[in-house]
Amino acid sequence: MATLEFNVRPSSVLPDHRPLFKITQLLLVLLLSSRGRKSSLVRLQLFNWVLKEDARREKLVRAAKSQEIDFPAWGLDPTVQTAMTLAAADGLITATAKTVTLTDKGSTFCQRALEEQLYDEDAAYLRSLKTSITEKMVDNIVEKWV
């Protein structure tokens, strides 16, 4: 009779679900693509969702040029809130009910990640957008949700 043997092995965690990956990615949004290094959580959710797929990235570039976001909605990822909570606990951001702001410590953290060339693709994309995706553009879409 044949027998089966199972060996428990560690499973890898997708980068998108690693807190440090998500924290760094969102802090780069604050540093490179946000006015005054601050943003609403909904806007950060938009960037989180867009950075996952090239087609979404291209669509957001078109939205930046037209000054109108043409996503009717986007995914709201609970890992964003977790990442922001951890970042705030470490002093990388300050958060209020409406706004997340990058601190000096967070800015230094981002500069270090950029120096190490860990997020070159994301950084290049965010630099190309600059601050063209505004809170007003995001608010216009969110108003339609209610």
Rank of each mutant, 00 (worst) to 15 (best):
V42Q: 11
L44T: 03
L44S: 09
Q45W: 08
Q45K: 02
L46T: 08
L46C: 09
F47M: 15
F47T: 07
F47S: 05
N48V: 01
W49C: 14
W49V: 01
V50D: 04
V50G: 12
V50P: 12
L51C: 05
L51N: 05
E53H: 12
D54T: 10
A55L: 07
R57G: 07
R57S: 11
E58Y: 03
E58S: 11
K59I: 00
K59G: 00
L60C: 06
L60K: 04
L60G: 05
L60F: 09
A63P: 10
A63G: 10
A64K: 12
K65Q: 14
S66M: 02
Q67W: 07
Q67A: 14
E68I: 13
I69D: 10
I69W: 13
A73P: 00
A73G: 04
G75T: 05
G75H: 11
G75I: 03
L76T: 13
L76Q: 13
L76P: 00
D77M: 02
D77G: 04
P78D: 10
P78E: 11
P78Y: 12
T79H: 11
T79K: 13
V80K: 06
V80A: 06
Q81E: 13
Q81T: 11
T82H: 12
T82Y: 14
A83I: 02
A83P: 08
T85R: 11
T85L: 12
L86G: 03
L86M: 14
A89F: 05
G91C: 04
G91L: 10
G91T: 04
G91R: 08
I93S: 00
T94L: 09
T94Q: 11
A95R: 14
A95F: 04
T99C: 01
V100T: 03
V100N: 02
L102Q: 07
L102F: 07
T103Q: 02
T103I: 03
D104V: 03
D104N: 07
D104P: 02
K105I: 08
K105M: 08
G106Y: 00
G106D: 01
G106W: 03
G106Q: 04
